[in-house]
């Protein structure tokens, strides 16, 4: 049996390998060696430019967004003690997308590059607060999923409404980006604008590790073990809002990553919610990078939305979870 440190090393290596693969895949042949060499020497050849301005920000964003989704999924599942919890399923991602859409198409986002992620973050915060208000203290699976369905439906409808009301004729067709996500043609400006909130969000989420371990024994026991659940909830809602809000604002909704990855990794960490966090983040990064590579290899033009690939893997996976759950609940 691999030690935890060993597992993290393995996952980090996998992530690094897929990061390299993401750099190596694109729409024009690129000699990675020559490109990196040129870039280091400061020579602005076409190779160096494609590498630095197109491939690198795309790969970095894939890494950051994927880590965010894996981490947020693990934290939500640990905190809600519910294996179906995930920012997409419960409506946080959908809400964040609506916040970003509102801010973008109204022209507010043009005032400052930070406004776009801010829109996503605020909306995600509202959804988080709403979820806890609606679902109350004991969140059964049914309540959680229903709340998520309601929020996702509303978010989708509002996004559609906003896009149709937008004065630009392209807007209506852009719904596919927002609801299915994409990392195409991203630049470093997207990376800088999302990096700050994401990292702060990660810190908040990682701080809940021990509380999640305590929560395996129930809320009462966790409280008697000295954990202030109000503070933990604030860290969870705030951390998810910051990281997932910013990620969704620059990449759209990429579903199912936060659902699949914790499940696959949980047995490898002995089902301990605290240890799952970083492992899940790295696995989320790996999955997202792999999907982004696939999207560039599949010969559709323009390229497929990222969420299509994650949904094709994720929806059957979700269904298998429901199937398994059904047998348990009998």
């Amino acid at each position: 049996m691999v030690s935890h440190g060993g597992l993290l090393m393995l996952l980090a290596t996998l992530t690094a390998a897929l990061f390299a693969a993401s750099l190596a895949v694109g729409y024009a042949p690129l000699d990675l060696g020559a490109a990196t060499g040129d870039a280091f020497r400061g020579e602005e050849t076409v190779q160096a430019l494609v590498f630095v301005e197109l491939r690198l920000p795309r790969a970095i964003l894939g890494l950051l967004v994927g880590f965010t989704l894996g981490l947020a999924g693990a934290v939500m599942q640990g905190f809600l003690r519910n294996p179906l919890a995930e920012p997409g399923v419960v409506g946080v991602s959908g809400g964040a997308a609506f916040g970003a859409v509102l801010v973008f198409y109204s022209g507010l986002a043009a005032l400052s590059p930070l406004i776009l992620p801010a829109g996503g973050i605020l909306a995600a915060l509202l959804v988080g607060a709403l979820l806890f208000a609606v679902a109350g203290r004991g969140m059964s699976t049914t309540t959680l999923i229903l709340a998520g369905v309601a929020i996702n439906s509303l978010a989708g409808a509002l996004i559609s409404l906003t896009l149709n009301l937008a004065p630009n004729p392209y807007a209506a067709m852009e719904i596919m980006f927002w609801l299915m996500g994409s990392l195409a043609d991203r630049s470093f400006s997207h990376v800088w604008v999302a990096l700050g909130p994401m990292v702060v969000g990660w810190v908040m989420l990682l701080s809940t590790a021990r509380a999640l371990d305590a929560l395996s024994l129930g809320e009462a026991t966790a409280r008697t073990l000295g954990f202030d659940l109000r503070r933990v909830r604030a860290m969870v809602v705030g951390g998810v809002a910051l990281s997932v809000g910013a990620a969704t604002a620059v990449a759209g909704v990429i579903g199912f990553v936060g659902l699949i990855v914790p499940h696959l990794v949980r047995p490898l960490v002995g089902h301990r919610p605290g240890r799952l966090l970083i492992a899940s983040g790295l696995s989320g990064a790996s999955l997202t990078l792999a999907a982004d590579v696939a999207v560039r290899l599949i010969p559709t033009r323009p390229e497929l939305q990222l969420g299509v690939v994650t949904a094709i893997i994720g929806a059957p996976f979700l269904f298998s979870l429901v199937w398994r759950y059904r047998r348990v609940e009998r």
């Binding site: 371990d213 305590a214 395996s216 024994l217 073990l225 000295g226 949980r266 002995g270 089902h271």
Partner: peptide
């Protein structure tokens, strides 16, 4: 109840968190 299928020694170890 214990939410996740943790091993016994890990469950007991949770008692050391304080």
């Amino acid at each position: 109840g214990v939410e996740w299928p943790l091993t016994v020694d890990r469950v007991v170890a949770i008692g050391r968190l304080p």
